[in-house]
Design a protein around this nucleic acid. Structure first.
Lengths: 200, 200, 200, 200
DNA sequence: GATGAATGAGTATTCATTCAT
DNA sequence: CATGAATGAATACTCATTCAT
């Protein structure tokens, strides 16, 4: 009965924000951004439409928030110790971690692929580069890793080409898995093992 | 004074149909199905909204027609002699042909990638599986090719896994190239050569 | 091969006019004025939309023409010898003729009832009284008939009231029959006999 | 400051629903279902088009609701004590009640006649026969009444025919009165007396 | 903070009518 | 005379957003 403290209010707000974003993410992922209505999100989150606008200024901003948060989360996986260095064992771990992530957040990644492919979103990314931490760090890390392999590979080994092949394969793997039917036997783990074996 | 002949009318219809479909393809691919309005398509095609409906009964049917046509066109490239058989040399040719196609029609493929990733389009595909010829012919052809390789590979060779890896790599290659910046040096030909070398 | 004479052209025109009106009447009666499209009428009449407008300046005018023609035809039945006089035997004939007409042109009458009830149409009739010959002649004829009956009826007979009852009954009969289901056994002839018996 | 209570919201909804239905009834009846636009209804009701759809899912469903409500209301008058039985005195009362109703709500009945004659509405009735309680209760009541008269009538009396004549006459009476000019001396009460006298 | 009624700009679709051929 | 492609105004319906309470 006593009035809530500032902190309690802030916690409640944060909780509700997360609830709305969770609800929205599910709808966006399942039915797409356009086909999802604010009404659906609100009803699913158990709040009124009006309240939604108390937390997010617009549907578009809600989407951006979700992207921001998801991107941030993903970054945790790519280079968890933030030292920008990939040892041989860490490489295997790197691939396994991505595979794990794909599996656990398939719907989110699917949404991501879709969003990232839309021209508007691509423009948005180039225009707001600073808003979303980007991947040059990752590229540098990989580049360095493949260059180091030169020492243990036969002459004529082309590190840049090998890295490109690796990235291409990883992308193709992600794309294929993320849009694959759940029924279809993808032999996920075998493919992952093969990729590691090929590019370690 | 006299009315147009049947052929003249047919020609007009065919031409305009193609015009509308081209305009629609670009918009759908760029902005997605939902975000594209009939008005935009019509204006871009230089016709009235009403006329659109003289040629296509609905926005949805227009989309289906585009998919049908595009899928048909692609089929021409995958197995041009329609014998469903891929010899060793033909495999190399198969990859080269796809690479060549990607290069020559980069913009179209980019559009098509975008289109195929749209949730609405994917729903169409799952819901109307039978309406659009699926790719089993291609899959069967590749499957047979990789199975044949078993004879010349060491024991333990896994044809199905190898085929999956090939398809994944090809998809990743296409995706990466199609959305790559034109300035960026992709070393296209080296990658193609590498893929052939790896899966021949 | 010789050029058609003026008369031949006129005949062709007249024939085509009738064909269009027939086609339109069927559609209007079956599906209503609004739900009927010019395209349907034209296709059903085996001509092009454009040609329709060569014969009738608008859809509305086409409707009016149909009404005009139908009204004219009906008048032929009400007072065929145009002498404005109704003898006792002629009264029976009058009712029978109307009954016959209802039966033969049920759909047309139904259309009529519908049209006549719409406020716009009612306005149209009041505004264009002169365009459509109206019914005062009929009313006068009936009025005179019922007045004559006074001589053979007991004192206290109210000719005006009797006429009103007759008209009311006839209207109710027409209304009921015209909107009756074809399956429903209406005992049409018995009712007609009863009406004649009651008001002769 | 605080949001409206559930009851307040419910009251608003009920009131506005009634307002929209009233507005729609007038327009549908006057101009027909097709010719009436949602815009007209909304403007006449003093609300926005969008709000209409907050209360009724479609134009068609709005029409159905109106029919349902109107039919229900009429039922109150036909057999107010709901015992389904019509004694001789009650028959007179039955006719008088209908006459009274016609007089008091002439405009509403006119609207309703127009509405019921619309093809679309009739289609609804045939297609949704079960959705709208039909009048069998009334018909059965009358049927029973006229059958009972057989005992006090001369041999050869045809109760079914007599009932038909009664219904026809009543319909014709209602139709004529409802669309009659207010200036015209209809001798309403004399006609009612005559009908009672004739079918009692 | 919370509600949901209310708005209005937008969207697919229809169809009478025009017009070049 | 005849055709049907083309137009554009109208119409039902949707939905993000606002706002009184």
């Amino acid at each position: 009965m006593s009035p809530r403290t500032k902190k309690q209010y802030a916690d409640i707000r944060e909780e509700k924000r997360a609830l709305i974003m969770q609800s929205a993410l599910e709808h966006f992922s399942l039915n797409g951004y356009h086909a999802t209505t604010i009404s659906h999100i609100a009803k699913h989150a158990g709040i009124s439409k009006g309240l939604m606008y108390n937390y997010f200024p617009s549907k578009e901003e809600l989407l951006k928030e979700i992207i921001r948060k998801s991107v941030d989360e993903m970054y945790q996986y790519f280079d968890p110790d933030h030292d920008g260095y990939l040892s041989g064992d860490e490489f295997e771990d790197f691939v396994l971690r991505i595979a794990e992530l794909l599996k656990r957040k398939k719907a989110v990644w699917r949404l991501f692929f879709r969003l990232l492919m839309q021209e508007d979103v691509q423009k948005f990314f180039t225009e707001n580069e600073n808003q979303f931490r980007d991947l040059p760090g990752i590229t540098a890390m990989l580049s360095e890793y493949f260059n180091r392999k030169k020492e243990i590979k036969p002459p004529g080994y082309d590190p840049f080409l090998d890295m490109n092949m690796f990235i291409i394969t990883l992308k193709g793997f992600a794309l294929t898995f993320v849009f694959s039917d759940d029924q279809y036997d993808f032999r996920f783990d075998d493919v992952v093992k093969k990729i590691i074996e090929q590019y370690k």
